[in-house]
Each structure stands twice: as structure tokens, then as C-alpha cells.
């Protein structure tokens, strides 16, 4: 338990959280290991956890019937995976698959959800920190959509003379 708390303390997401909060969150966490190819999350399945990736590559994917799994993004050491536990209906919107051996801390969102409801201060604090991750991902996604390395002109831009 002590080990998990220490691990979390070093992560930017939990920086400067009061000791008591860290203890509480740490109490909801456990170390886990996924082997290459193993699914960490499946689209539409209940999203009861989120993950601090300590080591290894994780692919965030969606399945296309005529293509197979399409990787949208890879996550790496230090990245957080999963925010679906925070929002109803608490189900994953994408697959997450270990591309190699992945070590992570799995945090019990279901348990944290409960605690956030009871303690709005903690709830707001976590919400702010997750909102930051969400905006960073959104920004990256938009940049990806820009297709900046293409020699084609952006399709969304108005036609210039």
C-alpha cells in the first residue's frame, strides 16, 4: 500500500495533493502487469478503473469491420489511461491493448467515484486534473486531424485564390 502511494506521489497527476487524499487514492490502487496483446480495456465494457502506465506501450484502438483494429494513439511510460470511470455511463469508448509487457498501477474508479461524491473538494480536485488530461488529448487529436505533414491542402480550409 505504501509503495503505491509513493509511486503516485511521483506522478504529475497527483502532484501536491494532500497526504490524506493520496492515502485514500493509494488505497484504491494496485500494481498490475499486462502481457503483449492483452486487452486492458474493451469498448463498451464497464469502465471501473483508470491506469497509470509505469512501463510499456499501450495502443488505444477502435475496431473497424473492414480493416481490423485501428490504432488512434499510443500511450507510454508516465501516461494516464482512462477517464470513462468519471462520467456516466461509465463504459470504455475505445479498446486499450498492451503492445508489449506493460506495468501499471490500476486505480479503482468505482471506489473513487463514491468517495468523490461524498467529498466534493476531492471530487473537484480530481476533476480538474483529469480535465487537463482530456484537453491535452483533445489538442493532440486536433493537431493530428490537421494532417500537417500532408502535401495536400487542408480539406477544411476555405478555398483560397
Amino acid at each position: 500500500m505504501r509503495g503505491i502511494q509513493q509511486l503516485l506521489q511521483q506522478h504529475a497527476l497527483f502532484q501536491d495533493l494532500p497526504e490524506a487524499d493520496l492515502t485514500l487514492i493509494g488505497g484504491c490502487g494496485e500494481n498490475c502487469v499486462y502481457n503483449a496483446g492483452e486487452y486492458i480495456a474493451r469498448e463498451n465494457a464497464p469502465a471501473d478503473f483508470f491506469y497509470v502506465i509505469r512501463e510499456g506501450r499501450v495502443a488505444v484502438e477502435t475496431y473497424m469491420p473492414n480493416h481490423g483494429a485501428l490504432c488512434l494513439q499510443t500511450l507510454h511510460d508516465g501516461d494516464i489511461f482512462g477517464w470513462s470511470w468519471l462520467f456516466p455511463p461509465y463504459r470504455w469508448t475505445f479498446d486499450a491493448r498492451a503492445l508489449e509487457k506493460v506495468r501499471a498501477v490500476r486505480l479503482d474508479g468505482k471506489c473513487l467515484r463514491q468517495k468523490c461524491e461524498e467529498d466534493p473538494r476531492l471530487g473537484f480536485e480530481l476533476m480538474k486534473r483529469f480535465a487537463r488530461i482530456v484537453t491535452e488529448r483533445l489538442q493532440a487529436t486536433r493537431l493530428q486531424l490537421l494532417d500537417v505533414y500532408s502535401s495536400e491542402r487542408p480539406r477544411t480550409a476555405e478555398t483560397r485564390q
Binding site: 495502443a59 488512434l72 494513439q73 499510443t74 491493448r97 489538442q139
Partner: peptide, 12 residues
Amino acid sequence: TGWPGQIGVITK
């Protein structure tokens, strides 16, 4: 996913 590098944008 066979590609060994990252998938995403360089800013990350």
C-alpha cells in the same frame, strides 16, 4: 500497431 514508434503527435 506493428510500428515500433509512437502514434500521435510530436508535441506529446
